[in-house]
């Protein structure tokens, strides 16, 4: 079953008088539980592709279907709900809220969902899952890059998403931390059956994926099955 489907998606930015085609007719699908890596040079449209799946950006034309729902007809509120309940985001720059502790950062999506205080205790469990049980009360500036990214993974898992979107999750990390982060993502994919779509430059990282989608100039160059 496809959890993600893109049908001839185009995204055109108007920068001054120049039209930039970030996505130029992309069609793709991702199956439930699949680990897909998107590779391509800078400006090839891979981040835009990820943002489309994450309902952070809207296509100029074409359809983005998540879990069978055409997102183009959803309101801002419904899109927010979809992101909150179905999708977990992991960014290259971690993007943690600096005033909140690791625990509170993980709690935040649950608060947005309206979870009770006792339900939010789950954050502790998720943080120990990523190996940060001792750091739960630390703020982001008291954590290393690798630790921050693991908090970000924990945050992405807070509302039990079925899809995990990772935008260069190891881009700012050293090899060791990067591997630790990738091991967690792989484990989530294999053990929890969470669908993973991961954008990366690094061929070593794309080896974790079942399938690699290569992009160039806003188009998919050709899919290949890695496994």
């Amino acid at each position: 079953m496809n959890v993600i489907e893109l049908e001839n998606v185009k995204k055109i930015y108007q920068i001054g008088e120049v039209e930039v085609k970030a996505l130029n007719g992309v069609s793709a699908s991702v199956e439930d539980g699949e680990f897909v890596s998107i590779m391509g040079p800078s400006g090839s449209g891979k981040s835009t592709f990820l943002n489309m799946i994450g309902c952070l950006d809207k296509p100029t034309s074409g359809k983005v279907i998540i879990n069978g729902v055409d997102t183009s007809v959803l309101s801002d509120r419904d899109l927010t709900k979809l992101r909150r309940d179905t999708i977990g985001f992991i960014f290259q720059t971690y993007n943690l809220i600096p005033t909140l502790t690791a625990f509170e950062n993980v709690e935040l999506p649950m608060i947005f969902m309206g979870a009770s205080k006792s339900e939010r205790e789950k954050a502790r469990e998720i943080l120990s899952l990523v190996g940060l049980e001792k750091e739960i009360n630390r703020k982001p500036n008291e954590l290393s890059g690798g630790q921050q990214q693991r908090v970000a993974i924990a945050r992405a898992l807070a509302n039990n998403p079925s899809i995990l979107l990772c935008d260069e999750p190891t881009g700012n990390l050293d090899t060791k931390s990067g591997k630790a982060v990738m091991d967690i993502i792989e484990r989530l994919n294999k053990e929890e059956r969470i669908t993973v779509v991961l954008v990366t430059h690094d061929p070593a990282i794309s080896k974790y994926a079942d399938r690699v989608i290569r992009m160039i100039d806003g188009k998919i160059e050709g899919g290949s099955n890695v496994s």
Binding site: G54, T80, K81, R83, R84, N95, I97, F112
Partner: peptide, 16 residues
Amino acid sequence: TKEIGVMRAIGAYRET
């Protein structure tokens, strides 16, 4: 701004 973007991405409504 970026923080607001992050919160919106992880499920905060405009009202939040």
